[in-house]
Design a protein around this nucleic acid. Structure first.
Length: 551
RNA sequence: GAGGGCGUAGCUCAGUCGGCAGAGCACCUGCCUUUUAAGCAGGUGGUCCUGGGUUCGAGUCCCAGCGCCCUCACCA
């Protein structure tokens, strides 16, 4: 017999003892349960001295037993509900022998309800002194260690339900905030007149991003389908249809590598606004984030675990190391003040107060790399210095790098703008800690993007960065059907990345009916939640991140 | 896909030079009517990730595999 079997057997014996005593170990509906936090609020209105019990203050609370202190004929249980914890006080003489016998069959992890009267113990702890004990669910497996909780990263992801109840103060809180953030964004856009829609996840033709798709199959139609990599092409059709302001919170699927910032399925919000441009989308980005921050409250005291093993070892019971100086700084208490927009992230404090910094791509390249974007020789030299040129020339032939000598510097095999882009990633992006809109990208690295009317070498695009991480991407959208069609043709011809979208004739047809000029924006929800909950891994903001079979 | 780290009781973790498998929590038995990770006394509990190998002897050394984490690659 394994040890876990022994644990189960002990608990099954207690379950059977409950049944033998006529108590259902798996109770049903329990009306009028009050949240722990609400009982506390109600108690605030009363003056209760230590050791006092208020016969007229009754309450019913339910939750999971997280602590159990049996002191003979008296016991204290700590139960946890969705709002916090509450102490139950049980006295053998008050409860009576029958109920006391029920208590004796309880273990850590069981879910119970209690009716009782409120009081304070000698030490002042707010306590519900039970008159009636209600068994709601006998747990057959023991919870993890009560002090450390579940820290094994693999077990946390594979058994997230255990992670959630045993690491309530950080893990559960992350997902509570995630919910609040999404709700706030939705409300913000709806208030602006946006319509929320659902477009196909199963797509016969995939597009809207450069990524490898997952393939699936419909049996009856005998048709291969792709899980969407982006909702973009459907949302633009809706612009044609007259949905002038439209958004979707979209689960996207990309058959790519996995990293602390990439999960095969991830959430993104995409929005399109007719008659707007990418500058308007900057304001929308700021607005959504501001709404999200307002929804989750003031400056975060929350510091969550990273995936790293070193982090796990440092982990304290409630909050992680390194955040002490960020907890309730006196200067940040004003709800409406700009300080509310300060969020801790790793060793940084990010300031999301609008307006965020707006900087042109070329200007940032000059500022952080000291490079003139038009100086082909200088860029080439720096690329060689950084080993980028060598890496790219080595990669020629595997399909990822294309030789375009006409755009290259003298003697270079690699396109100038490709080198610029690589240098930007290495030399500039890590410096973009504070929220920053990088705009006016070189057109050649985003060939499908609408050009600046006065300068065809500039694309009307921005990317939003924070903590060195890409957070969002926006465009002044192309609405010329012939240009769009030509873009598709160039992709199909393999001129761009070979994984990019195939020709979507219906999409072109839609545009031929007239699509209003529009601004379009995509924001990674998971990454935004990471930033606003100080989570270092995307897996810490996704409830059930993909794991290999087994383990 | 490449490199590095980790895998020991249900959980959190020690384990020295290769020499009887350890602690805390949890669990079981007993005591306890004001505890706060309650306490005290006694006790149970092991596929040391899996499979090979070296050795008189392997948790420890070697090889292969599996899983997780990290870095890189991939990735609007």
């Amino acid at each position: 017999m394994s040890e876990s079997d022994r644990y189960m057997l002990e608990r099954e014996k207690k379950r059977d003892a409950l049944r033998a005593a006529g108590v259902d170990p798996y109770g049903g509906r329990l009306p009028d349960v009050e949240a722990a936090v609400d009982v506390r609020a109600r108690a605030d209105g009363r003056d209760i001295s230590a050791g006092e019990k208020l016969a007229d203050f009754t309450a019913r609370i339910a939750g999971r037993i997280t602590l159990l202190r049996d002191i003979g004929k008296l016991a204290f249980l700590t139960v946890q509900d969705r709002t916090g914890t509450f102490q139950f006080g049980l006295s053998k003489s008050e409860l009576g022998d029958a109920q006391w016998a029920v208590f004796k069959q309880l273990d850590l992890g069981d879910i119970i309800g209690g009716d009782g009267i409120l009081g304070r113990t000698k030490t002042g702890e707010l306590t519900l002194w039970l008159k009636t004990l209600i068994v709601l669910a006998k747990a057959l497996r023991p919870p993890p260690e009560k002090w450390h909780g579940l820290t094994d990263v693999e077990l946390r992801y594979r058994h997230r339900y255990v992670d959630l109840f045993s690491n309530r103060d950080d893990v559960y809180e992350v997902f509570r905030r995630r919910s609040a953030i999404i709700h706030a964004i939705r409300e913000y856009l709806v208030d602006l007149g946006y319509l929320e829609v659902d477009t196909p996840v199963l797509q016969p033709i995939y597009g809207g991003a450069a990524a490898r798709p997952f393939v699936t199959h419909h049996n009856t139609l005998d048709m291969d389908l792709y899980l969407r990599i982006s909702p973009e092409l459907y949302l633009k059709r809706l612009l044609v249809g007259g949905m002038e302001r439209v958004f979707e919170i979209s689960r996207n699927f990309r058959n790519e590598g996995i990293s602390p910032r990439h999960n095969p399925e991830f959430s993104m919000i995409e929005l399109y606004e007719a008659y707007a441009d990418y500058h308007v989308m900057m304001e929308r980005t700021e607005g959504m984030v501001a709404a999200a921050i307002a929804a989750i409250g003031g400056p975060a005291e929350l510091v969550v675990q990273g995936g790293g093993q070193d982090d796990a070892k440092d982990r304290g019971p409630l909050v992680r190391s390194g955040e002490a100086e960020l907890r309730d700084p006196p200067a940040l208490t004003g709800r409406a003040s700009a300080a509310t927009f300060l969020r801790p992230f790793g060793e940084h404090t990010l300031n999301f107060a609008p307006p965020w910094r707006r900087a042109k791509y070329a200007d940032l390249l000059r500022e952080y790399a000291g490079l003139d974007i038009k100086d082909k020789a200088g860029v080439l030299d720096r690329a060689k210095e950084q080993g980028i040129y060598q890496k790219l020339t080595k990669a020629i032939g595997d399909g990822h790098v294309h030789v375009k000598p006409d755009h290259a510097a003298e003697g270079s095999l690699i396109d100038h703008d490709v080198l610029v882009n690589e240098l930007f990633d290495v030399l500039v992006q890590p410096h973009l800690i504070q929220p920053t809109f990088v705009y006016d990208y070189p057109a050649s690295i985003c060939p499908l993007t609408r050009r600046h009317p006065g300068d065809p070498s500039i694309a009307l695009r921005f990317e939003a960065f924070a903590a060195g991480m890409e957070l969002g991407n926006a465009y002044t959208e192309l609405n010329d059907p012939r240009v769009q069609e030509e873009n598709f043709r160039r992709q199909v011809a393999g001129e761009g990345d070979e994984t990019m979208a195939v020709m979507d004739e219906d999409f072109v047809m839609a545009m031929e009916y007239g699509m209003p000029p529009a601004g379009g924006l995509g924001v990674g929800i998971d990454r935004l939640v990471m930033l606003l909950t100080n989570s270092r891994s995307i897996r810490d903001v996704i409830l059930f991140p993909l794991q290999r079979k087994g383990g």
